[in-house]
Amino acid sequence: MKGAANTSNKLDPTSFMTSSFIRYLVMVQKELLEQARSYKLLWVPLVFVLLGIMQPVSTYYMPVILEHAGSLPEGTVIDIPMPLGAEVLAQTLQQFGTLGMLVLVLACMGTVSGERLSGVSAIILVKPISASAYISSKWTSMLLLAWGSLAAGYLASWYYTGLLIGETPIVQAYESMLVYGLWLSAVMTITLLFSTWLRSSAAAAFAALGGALMLTLLASLFPKQLGWTPGALSGFAYQLAAAGTPDSSTLSAAVVVTIVCMLGSISLAALQLRKSLAAE
């Protein structure tokens, strides 16, 4: 693949834009190959599917589970109203927000810092590959992993919810998935930024998870003032899934702000990488 990058450079030396785009594509391919070789491409979506199936199934069998738990006194009447399908979907998203996000961040925490520690990034960046192509290829592959896992898990959850609890219109699920995917992308971008900034991958994971927690906390504490921040996106996604209609102007403001923040973070990460390479 490195050969491919070189030959494309020789064949087309005049058009810089094309060759740098091809280099970027080659780097994305390399990242995806690495994800496949480390089986991330397989186990992360599987974990999401498992989380997605668990939620409707455990909701459906909650009365049975409670009945067999045995810690209740004889003759207790258990009467739990079965939630709507849409509510179960919202709960699934909340599951993705805790365990799913943890898994994604932990799986991606070493993308840059691990490669820098092992010296792989030094080998790559000696070749005619810019820091921004390196960072953006990593970002693309991380986002592909996050969106793929989310889509697989959410689809499984939607199917099971329809089977066990109640049908939900797929448009509703689709909209909430888009908003939630944007939030996951933002968290992945923060992870990438911290992974470039901090030398330790564990520190990057902690910083990213802490940052995500703080963002959601702030947005939920001050929904009026901070409804436009990225942290509010997960709340909007739950609302959309549970058939609520969130304030569309605030939602679109949050979407725009999040995209701008993500682009800023990638640029910052690329800048940081270039700076620290120059310093070495």
């Binding site: 397989l42 186990w43 599987l46 498992l50 199934v57 459906y60 069998y61 049975v64 067999h68 066990l164």
Partner: peptide, 26 residues
């Protein structure tokens, strides 16, 4: 209880299969 387990099996099967796949890969 046996009736309950027989009802559960087809629903729980995918969960068990996915867990087994992940375990095998690991």
């Amino acid at each position: 209880e046996s009736i309950v387990i027989a009802d559960l099996l087809p629903i729980l099967a995918p969960i068990i299969v996915i867990q087994l796949i992940i375990m095998t890969i690991a």
